[in-house]
Simulated scan of single mutants.
Amino acid sequence: MVKNKVKSIVLPFSICFVIALALYPDSKLNPDKYSTKGLELDYNIKEDIAMNSHFNDIENEQTIFTPFLGKSFEGFKEAIAFKESRGDYFTVNTLGYLGKYQFGSETLKTIGIYRPNSFLHNPELQEKAFVANAERNKWILRKDIKRFEGKQIAGVEITESGILAAAHLAGPGSVKKFLRSYGGHNFSDAYGSTVKHYMKKFSGYDTSVLKPNKKAKARI
């Protein structure tokens, strides 16, 4: 019985000892055996994980889906910002339009901003201005939104977000003319962007967070 007990202790010990010798013949851990030298290692996140898989080709002027924002209101804002200025708060274009959303000085006055230079250096105010201007435009265009939303005009499905984006580009008056002429009056800015293009490009976003407000002002 003692002999059996000895075997039960010695045999496992012997197996472990042999394995240890095979793995560590010099009784030392050799780090060279575990080096990653020469291996191709890729630490980059895959594009389909890092970006929304529906992000389309910007060069082809397709609808932009901002990473992770999709068709949300934040996605709407950032898509317009990218189109207008590549998202740069501090840029001024050749016509004097300012900031991330490229506001003109006259439009800024309608929402209570009278110091363009201060506006240009205040990102928080620029974000407030975008919302205030969109809410004012939504009030002006409220009847047109109700009348035309869901219809096809000049090959474009009319949506509230498309209407508001086009109003940001051209003003609510030009949008009314486009809708009420069924695409016959298609305003184009100095760089060739049209009401129709913005209607299509920014269609289908969720802009329900915006409340129609005749007297909307940008305040911080």
Rank of each mutant, 00 (worst) to 15 (best):
V10M: 11
L11R: 10
L11W: 10
L11K: 06
P12K: 04
P12N: 12
F13M: 11
F13Q: 08
S14H: 06
S14G: 14
S14Y: 11
S14K: 06
I15L: 13
I15P: 02
I15F: 14
I15T: 04
C16V: 07
C16W: 03
C16Q: 12
C16E: 01
F17L: 15
F17D: 05
F17A: 13
V18K: 01
V18H: 04
V18I: 01
I19V: 07
I19W: 02
I19H: 07
A20M: 09
A20R: 04
A20L: 01
A20D: 01
L21A: 02
A22S: 06
A22H: 06
L23G: 00
Y24A: 03
P25I: 11
P25L: 05
D26I: 00
D26P: 00
D26G: 02
D26C: 06
S27F: 13
S27E: 02
K28S: 08
K28M: 12
L29D: 08
L29V: 11
L29Q: 03
N30W: 00
P31H: 05
P31K: 14
D32I: 05
K33W: 11
K33L: 13
Y34I: 08
S35A: 10
S35W: 02
T36Q: 13
T36S: 13
T36R: 08
T36C: 09
K37R: 08
K37G: 06
G38R: 04
E40S: 15
L41H: 08
D42C: 00
Y43G: 09
Y43W: 09
N44E: 15
N44K: 14
N44Q: 15
I45N: 00
K46G: 15
K46Q: 03
E47F: 15
E47S: 12
E47K: 08
D48K: 09
D48F: 10
I49T: 15
A50Y: 12
A50T: 02
A50V: 02
A50Q: 06
M51F: 15
M51C: 01
M51V: 07
M51P: 09
M51I: 13
N52L: 05
S53Y: 07
S53D: 10
S53Q: 07
H54L: 14
H54P: 04
H54D: 07
H54T: 10
H54Y: 12
F55K: 05
F55V: 01
F55N: 07
F55D: 00
N56V: 03
N56R: 09
N56Y: 03
D57I: 02
D57R: 01
D57T: 02
I58L: 00
I58R: 02
E59K: 02
E59A: 07
E59P: 01
